[in-house]
Design a protein around this nucleic acid. Structure first.
Lengths: 151, 151
DNA sequence: GCAGACTCTATAGCTTCTGGAGATATAGGG
DNA sequence: CCCTATATCTCCAGAAGCTATAGAGTCTGC
C-alpha cells in the first residue's frame, strides 16, 4: 500500500504545506522569487513536489523561524549545496545574525524599563494625571536619552 | 532678530524634520494617512507648520521609538486631547505594549541560545563538517522543539 | 537675477508574506 | 456518468511603515 506520510514520492502543494508548516500561498511566493525551484506539473497543471522539495522547504522554514532573512537563506542554501566549500561563510552569517539578535534584545530591554517606568507613573484617574501621555509628550521625562530604532 | 530654534512660529517641512527627527517624506506620509493634520500653505504652496505641529510630531516620533504602532499612537493622541477622560485606556495601551515587548524579549533569548549553540557547533573547515547548515536542515538537532514566530 | 537648496506631487518600491476573485482539477459517493 | 466538495490554478491587491525617484516649481543669499 502507498505510504501515508511524507514518504510519498509525490506531493500536492497542500500536502507540502502540511508537511512543511508553510502556507500554500507562501510556497507559491517562494517559487515566484526563485527560492524554491519550479516543480513538475500534473496533466491538470498542478504542482507536483518531491521529497527534495520538502527538505529544501523545511530548511527555509526553519531558518525563517530562527529569524534569518530570505537573503541570508538564499546564501545558506547555496552553501549547503557545496559541502566541499569552506564553512566560514555559513558561520559568519550565523554569527552576524547572533549579534543582531543580541542587539535587539538589548534595545528591547531598555524599552521594557522605559515602559515599566511609564506604567508605574500613572497616578490619577484622568488623563490629566496620567504620566503615560505626559512622558510620551516629553522626551525629557524619559529614563534614557535616545531610543535607538528597533529594527 | 527672529529666533533661530524651534521657537520660530512658522516652519518649513525641512525645519520640522530637523526639529522632530522625522524625515521629510515620513512627515508627508503621516499627513497622508491622517496622523498629522494638513498644515496651512504658503503662497507658493509649501507647507507651513506651527509649534503645535512640532509637539504632535514629537509625540508621534517618541512613541514610535518606543515601539508603539501607528494605530496605538492614533489612540494615544486622541486620549491626549481629552485630559478629563479616564486614563485607563492609555494605561492599558502601555501595559499591553509592555507585555508585547517582554514576549519578544523571551523569544529572542531562546533564539540567542539556539544560535550560540549553532555557532559553537562548527567543527570542520568545510560545509560538510559545519553544523550550522546541518542544524538548519534538521529541526531535530535544535535545542527547542518549536520556534515561535518572531512577530 | 541666478545658482543651489529646498519643496511640491505622484508613483513605485521595499520585505515577507496573506488574502481574495474567479476559473479549473481532482476525489469520492451515488 | 454526474454531482459535489475540496483543492488548486493565476493574477492582483493589501498589509506596515516608510523610502526613493522623477520632473517640476519655489525660495534664499549674494
Amino acid at each position: 500500500m502507498p505510504p501515508r506520510s511524507a514518504a510519498a514520492t509525490v506531493m500536492t502543494i497542500g500536502r507540502l504545506s502540511a508537511e512543511s508548516g508553510c502556507k500554500v500561498p507562501t510556497i507559491r511566493y517562494y517559487e515566484q522569487i526563485g527560492l524554491m525551484p519550479e516543480p513538475d506539473r500534473s496533466e491538470g497543471n498542478q504542482r507536483q513536489y518531491s521529497r527534495r522539495h520538502l527538505e529544501r522547504l523545511r530548511f527555509i522554514r526553519h531558518s525563517r523561524d530562527l529569524g534569518f532573512t530570505l537573503d541570508d537563506i538564499r546564501e545558506l542554501l547555496t552553501l549547503a549545496a557545496h559541502p566541499e566549500a569552506p564553512c566560514e561563510e555559513a558561520d559568519a552569517i550565523a554569527r552576524r545574525h547572533l549579534r543582531l539578535v543580541r542587539d535587539r534584545i538589548d534595545r528591547l530591554r531598555k524599552l521594557e524599563q522605559e515602559l515599566e517606568h511609564m506604567a508605574a507613573c500613572c497616578h490619577g484617574p484622568t488623563v490629566r494625571d496620567c504620566r503615560v501621555i505626559e512622558i510620551l509628550s516629553d522626551h525629557g521625562k524619559c529614563l534614557s536619552d535616545g531610543h535607538p530604532p528597533l529594527d
